[in-house]
Computed example of a mutant assay.
Amino acid sequence: MQDIDLKQYIRGIPDFPKPGILFYDISTLLRNADAWQLATARMAHAVAPWQPDQLAAIESRGFLTAAPLSTRLGCGLIMLRKPGKLPGETISLTYDLEYGSDSLHIQADAIRPGQKVVVTDDLLATGGTLAASVALLRKAGANVVGASVLIELTALRGRDKLDIPVHTLLSYDE
């Protein structure tokens, strides 16, 4: 089981969500219990040396990776959400995208100053959302020690926007 190539569980969907895009569908990985267990075990093994106090999950597919990782690592889980999704006082950050802008929020009391946090998501593409997440977490007082993603599209060079170590489970050059 340890020698399994997890790429065989990722389905490529051409022209989704628009023509010219090859979408890497993780649902085929998620629905295979053995492959998903192996994926989360490999991610936990890579993240454990950073000794996070919290994992920060980017809405919404980041929740899928962060939940099993936080359980395996014995640390907390913080949600980074779109506007209007979190109760109570929040801290927000608006950031630019290729075609517009977006905003992320975190609950104001989610982090104690200096806590070590690892950001998790399903995909690292252009890096805008992950970089904004790091900036938001720092604004909230976190010591962001790394990021972990299921898939990285290396040709888009999103990693270049980050000043933290990044663990990638699966890389694609397209």
Rank of each mutant, 00 (worst) to 15 (best):
G74R: 11
I91G: 08
H167G: 00
G20T: 02
A108P: 12
S103P: 00
K18Q: 15
S133L: 14
P113R: 15
D109M: 06
K139E: 11
G128P: 11
A132W: 13
R61E: 07
G158M: 07
S60C: 09
M1C: 02
R157A: 13
D34P: 00
D109K: 14
A110I: 08
F16C: 04
L73P: 01
E152I: 02
R159P: 00
A140R: 11
D122R: 03
D53A: 08
I58Y: 07
G100C: 12
I106Q: 00
F16T: 04
R42H: 03
T28H: 14
M1V: 04
L55Q: 05
T90I: 13
G158S: 06
V117I: 15
L162M: 03
G74Y: 02
T168E: 04
L136T: 06
I151W: 00
H45A: 15
F23V: 05
T71W: 00
L22D: 03
R159Y: 02
G146A: 09
S148V: 13
L93W: 08
A147G: 14
Q8W: 02
T71E: 01
T120S: 15
L97S: 06
L156V: 01
R157L: 03
F23E: 08
P83D: 11
R72I: 04
A110Y: 10
Y95Q: 09
A132D: 12
S171R: 12
A48K: 14
A35M: 01
P83G: 07
M79P: 02
K85G: 08
E98A: 13
